[in-house]
Simulated scan of single mutants.
Amino acid sequence: MLSLFLVALASATLLPGGSEVWLARQWCQGEAVGLLWAVATLGNTLGSLVNVALGRYARHLAGRRWFPVSAPALARGERTYARLGRFSLLLAWLPVVGDALTVVAGLLRLPFGQATLLILAGKGARYAVVLWLAEHWLGGYCQ
């Protein structure tokens, strides 16, 4: 289970990874479905929260000449994201795009509790689907 947690955590950060394959592998080994779901969801959510924290840290760099976003653009982005963008975190499980969404959530200072709940919901749903697919498509292939 520790390996699943670590793979899921790393997969959600800017590091590459394939937590779905690892999850299906452990499912094939007969691990408890509920525990697999919880460990993968927790690890992947924590990995995304690392990205949110990195975005929050990067915010203090705003205003420097080399920072890629101007202060007015950042303020506009913050207002728009607060209204509409927070629900994009339900898609934080998407490859590549999900990492960017979580960093932007931190950069634009989405409240940490909201970010956590939205990321958790999206990732939990994704892993539930992966486990359902494993049960219905891989069941006969596991040894």
Score class of each variant (00 low, 15 high):
68 P>V: 01
91 L>E: 05
73 A>Y: 00
40 A>C: 09
111 P>A: 08
88 S>E: 01
92 A>G: 15
105 A>K: 07
119 I>Y: 03
36 L>I: 08
115 A>F: 06
91 L>A: 15
32 A>T: 13
76 R>A: 11
103 V>S: 00
79 R>Y: 02
104 V>Y: 00
109 R>G: 07
40 A>P: 10
73 A>P: 06
129 V>C: 06
106 G>L: 08
101 L>V: 12
29 Q>A: 10
88 S>Y: 10
72 P>L: 05
131 L>A: 10
81 Y>V: 02
70 S>M: 09
80 T>R: 09
121 A>H: 09
36 L>G: 07
67 F>T: 13
33 V>G: 00
136 H>R: 15
112 F>G: 10
80 T>M: 12
80 T>L: 15
21 V>G: 13
98 G>V: 08
125 A>M: 13
105 A>G: 11
79 R>W: 01
42 L>K: 02
46 L>E: 05
111 P>G: 12
49 L>D: 02
118 L>V: 13
35 L>V: 14
69 V>S: 00
50 V>W: 04
132 W>Y: 14
16 P>L: 05
115 A>Y: 03
18 G>R: 04
67 F>A: 07
22 W>N: 00
56 R>V: 07
53 A>Y: 08
86 R>K: 15
72 P>E: 06
61 L>D: 07
128 A>L: 15
133 L>F: 08
69 V>Q: 00
23 L>N: 02
109 R>D: 14
121 A>T: 15
48 S>R: 00
18 G>F: 10
48 S>Y: 00
73 A>V: 03
23 L>F: 06
66 W>E: 13
43 G>W: 00
88 S>R: 03
102 T>W: 01
110 L>K: 01
98 G>F: 07
33 V>Q: 11
22 W>G: 06
58 A>C: 11
129 V>T: 13
113 G>Q: 08
116 T>H: 02
113 G>P: 05
88 S>M: 14
65 R>T: 14
28 C>V: 09
110 L>V: 15
62 A>I: 08
34 G>Q: 06
113 G>E: 11
49 L>E: 04
82 A>R: 10
48 S>L: 00
82 A>E: 07
46 L>Q: 04
88 S>L: 15
103 V>D: 00
31 E>T: 02
121 A>C: 15
115 A>I: 08
18 G>L: 12
57 Y>A: 15
91 L>K: 08
57 Y>V: 13
122 G>E: 04
84 L>K: 11
32 A>M: 02
17 G>L: 08
14 L>V: 15
134 A>I: 08
87 F>T: 12
39 V>L: 05
117 L>D: 06
112 F>N: 01
48 S>Q: 04
33 V>S: 11
46 L>F: 10
21 V>T: 13
20 E>L: 03
101 L>P: 14
108 L>C: 11
40 A>E: 10
120 L>H: 03
115 A>W: 03
82 A>M: 05
119 I>P: 09
87 F>I: 11
21 V>D: 02
101 L>W: 05
109 R>L: 05
102 T>A: 12
43 G>S: 12
16 P>W: 04
80 T>I: 12
123 K>R: 12
105 A>R: 08
83 R>S: 12
102 T>H: 02
98 G>L: 03
29 Q>H: 09
32 A>W: 03
18 G>V: 09
79 R>A: 15
114 Q>Y: 15
115 A>C: 14
73 A>H: 03
87 F>L: 14
115 A>L: 03
122 G>N: 06
60 H>R: 15
96 V>G: 07
24 A>N: 04
46 L>K: 03
112 F>K: 04
70 S>I: 02
73 A>K: 04
